[in-house]
Design a protein around this nucleic acid. Structure first.
Lengths: 102, 102
DNA sequence: CAAATATATGTCATATATGACATATATCCA
DNA sequence: TGGATATATGTCATATATGACATATATTTG
């Protein structure tokens, strides 16, 4: 994990150690966070591929633009449940969704 | 979706329509729930393949046996985040985890 | 460039998930 | 069988996620 990624993680509310780089980020936590970031990226890619705005997505899932923005940013305050739901709401199949996480 | 599955869903706290079978369960909700159930099954399979008890898993993720049981039951009160975290805590790789969801 | 449109960030009150606990039920095995 | 071990179910106080809102900052378009 490079420094830019670490900065992005910290910016999104993840605890990635202060003095030392990320020794206190266990492998399993790292895997989880990286999968979640992949999911947030997948959601954004999917939305863009359909030429939809965050407001459009928000309407479909009865949420708000700000929450969609947070999903796409991989913010620590959003669950993967909401992200998966959003992708399905955009018409993606399970195969498609899972495929975007490989 | 057959009746047995519906019963299982309802038992786990999912709202799957009362009078009519499951007309009020939109395709995206169905996809989400089915993915989550696949994940709960994957977690259980993984645990059993390692010959661990729910208590063992609970210790590794600093949770409780009851919560692990709920994860494996696909209970509506548990997030996919916790399930993914658990699988990673059992040593599964992202490739492995994602592969179990295909 | 400026206006319009899109996205990001911060905060709140409320809803939901969490670990913990008690206890019920199932499964194992001597 | 019955005691031991494992899993399921229900509940609670607390922690965290949620939609909504305001508003800041980009990005597009004319």
């Amino acid at each position: 994990m490079n420094n830019a990624k670490k900065k992005r993680l910290e910016a999104n509310g993840w605890k990635v150690g202060s003095t030392d780089e990320f020794l206190n980020l266990s492998p399993e936590e790292a895997s989880y966070i990286e999968l979640k970031l992949a999911l947030s990226k997948a959601l954004q890619d999917l939305r863009k591929s359909k030429n939809l705005t965050q407001v459009d997505v928000a309407k479909r899932i009865k949420s708000s633009q700000s929450r969609v923005a947070k999903m796409e940013a991989g913010d620590s305050s959003v669950t993967m449940d909401l992200m998966f739901r959003s992708m399905f709401a955009l018409g993606a199949s399970r195969k498609k969704v899972v495929g975007m996480l490989v």
